[in-house]
């Protein structure tokens, strides 16, 4: 019995990590592309798209959860794909993380000196190459912050997962199912571990700025 529960907990941990890693990478790619494209749009259209994009941040989480559940079930009933499970979990996490990624990249893009992109082309880079050589490195701090944020949000999410998981267990879901009967020590230990992971990630986000400011001193050697 104990052993069975251990296996379940490990399975839940594995699922959680898989989902968080996949969803945060997907959300980062989608969010970065979206932010780059959005910046070029005229402001009224950009504002409209951003307002809709940010709806999951404003809406109560439970509404986002049940609305995605309805969507996935409808898709499954009509097309026969996307049965509630790992895929829908990963997809939902990607969906609710994208706005956070965009939110952390867009200001960096707006601060970006537009001449840099032109300067790279002036020095011989084709437009796409200029983007990778100059724009991307410059907005990298925003991209990384967005990715870490997405990862921690995904790692910790319960409400949206609860409605889109079907029978799949994630760590927060198994914690919830245990709260009636008492939380097992393994879960507490694992959670403490995750707490540390999240803490370290957040410290990285917070320290990045001050490190960048101090980098001059390091570079002076």
């Amino acid at each position: 019995m104990e052993l069975f529960r251990d296996i379940q907990v490990l399975k839940a941990l594995f699922n959680t990590v898989m989902i968080s890693v996949t969803a945060s990478i997907l959300a980062t790619i989608i969010g970065t592309l979206a932010a780059v494209g959005l910046r070029k749009l005229r402001s009224s259209l950009k504002k409209a798209i951003l307002t809709v994009t940010n709806l999951p941040m404003v809406n109560p989480e439970i509404v986002t959860g049940v609305s995605l559940m309805l969507t996935f079930i409808s898709i499954y009933n009509t097309l026969g794909v996307l049965k509630l499970g790992m895929a829908t979990l990963t997809l939902s996490h990607t969906i609710f993380c994208v706005p956070y990624v965009i939110l952390s990249i867009l200001p960096k893009l707006e601060q970006l000196n537009p001449s840099l992109y032109e300067a790279a082309q002036d020095l011989g880079c084709a437009p796409v190459k200029a983007f990778f050589r100059v724009v991307l490195p410059d907005i990298m701090p925003g991209i990384l912050t967005g990715m870490i944020m997405a990862f921690t949000l995904s790692l910790d999410d319960f409400i949206i997962s609860y409605f889109t998981s079907g029978t799949v267990m994630t760590l927060p879901i198994s914690i919830y199912s245990m709260t009636r009967k008492g939380v097992s020590p393994e879960i507490n230990a694992l959670s403490a571990l995750l707490f540390l992971v999240v803490l370290v990630l957040l410290l990285i986000i917070n320290l990045r700025q001050s490190v960048r400011e101090n980098a001059d001193v390091v570079n002076l050697r």
């Binding site: 000196n113 001449s115 840099l116 032109e118 300067a119 790279a120 082309q121 002036d122 020095l123 011989g124 880079c125 084709a126 437009p127 200029a130 050589r133 100059v134 490195p137 410059d138 990298m140 570079n219």
Partner: peptide, 30 residues
Amino acid sequence: LPAHKREINTIFQNYALFPHLNVYENVAFG
């Protein structure tokens, strides 16, 4: 002809030096 294929270079109003590269790498860029 796109900008990157012209034998013309520009010095920008605000210099547009690449902040993620040091002096040497900026000059070596082209």
